[in-house]
Design a protein around this nucleic acid. Sequence first.
DNA 1: GGCCGTCTCCGTACGGCGTACGGTACTGCC
DNA 2: GGCAGTACCGTACGCCGTACGGAGACGGCC
Lengths: 251, 251
Amino acid sequence: MATESTSGGDPARTMALLWRSPDGAGRRPGPRPGLDVDRVVAAAVELADREGLAAVTVRRLAAELGVGAMTLYTHVPGKGELVALMHDAVLGELYPEPPAGDWRARLTAVARANWDLYVRHPWAASVGTGRPVLGPNLMRRYDLELAAVDGLGLSEVEMELVVTVVGGFVRGTVGGLHDKDAAERDSGLTEDEWWAATEPLVDRVFDAARFPTAARVGPVAGNELGGYSPERTFEFGLARLLDGIAVLVER
Amino acid sequence: MATESTSGGDPARTMALLWRSPDGAGRRPGPRPGLDVDRVVAAAVELADREGLAAVTVRRLAAELGVGAMTLYTHVPGKGELVALMHDAVLGELYPEPPAGDWRARLTAVARANWDLYVRHPWAASVGTGRPVLGPNLMRRYDLELAAVDGLGLSEVEMELVVTVVGGFVRGTVGGLHDKDAAERDSGLTEDEWWAATEPLVDRVFDAARFPTAARVGPVAGNELGGYSPERTFEFGLARLLDGIAVLVER
DNA sequence: GGCCGTCTCCGTACGGCGTACGGTACTGCC
DNA sequence: GGCAGTACCGTACGCCGTACGGAGACGGCC
């Protein structure tokens, strides 16, 4: 699912940036910086929210900040690290308060908080997690989400699996939202307009006898859900998933 | 989640290619074609399986086929359409036989078939679905998966939602696998090597008092699962999801 | 006060990408 | 035999990320 890599240069440098570790020395000689990591990252997040992660190019971002392209490399080692910093930055929006209530309320809060985050920052769902960038906000999320399933009599492994499954479900489902946004942005067509243009083409090839169930269900679902509806899918799927976890928890 | 767009040129041309509609005329004047769509798509799929979707560039693919870069444009309108054709092509591997058995067996078969497909073709999980490319194999999948949840007393909308949720879960979970592959490929480090290099950096900043649950669960889960384990997540999550769907079906 | 070393900023350039355009050579039909 | 339509593809354009090196600002030291 995720396509945007975050790997790149020196991991120690990346970690230092993520945790904003002071580099030891105080004011050094040289001109006063006109820019800092936080401003760069904030502008990048804002740009990605507005026009998608693909619009965040070094030149574009630099122009938006009113500096030359290569200036960004003074503050950030490279594009990969920038994306990592953006990702950890938006994760910082999660859980102003830790999830509370009974386990079902807590897990619902976890799912909904992640969903809302990805709605605000759709690009964030496509940041690769193959080598998780272990920033402070990712750590905090991991900790709070595990805490949300603590004390239920689950083993450590089960706790980890529950959290991962819920997270994977949210990411998988929100991916549809992200795709819709991206498609609308770079085709300039709303879903209705697209379907109006596509339907006649489908009719020409679609054989109801060959796809009987699709022919019966597709139109009904399409009408009732108003096309593909990630929100409905999220609500429905979350309810099913929680019912399934209940079987495990309340056994 | 998905980042690879498939949009682009004339939808009618794309549909004709996907459905391999004969274009009416027989042999036309001109040199004998040395290449056709199927060979291009097959080579692209093979290359993507081997080195990831990012390795499928027009120049690279053309070189692999022993032709000039621009030659590909004779057979395929553009990169977007190529990806669409690749996607529909691998979907053709699904369901040599329709899922059979009771509903739980059928839905398990659906989930596992998609999982196996994405294991064979990890890049396929990152092909955007914002404007689904309505090829014959996507249609067939949609039809067969809906049929797998037919006759359970679910409404049309519920049928669609169940299928979408299961699909979203599989895609979301397999995303982890894809990320791992991609990260290993372009960092050259296995997960163990990466963790060995990263752990000391984490220890320097990680504060067990600040993240108590993570400090307790993380190491246990890490050891027992051998790092992040998408396979275990899939098995565990599928069991929970089916239990939850059972509550709906057997109400 | 002057110098040195370091830092910020950034112009230029390189090798990639997708693909528009136009040219060339081949071939089926009249 | 000529023509029209096709397959192939060299060149070029505007993007991308970023390596490299130079210019100018500034703190610390003498």
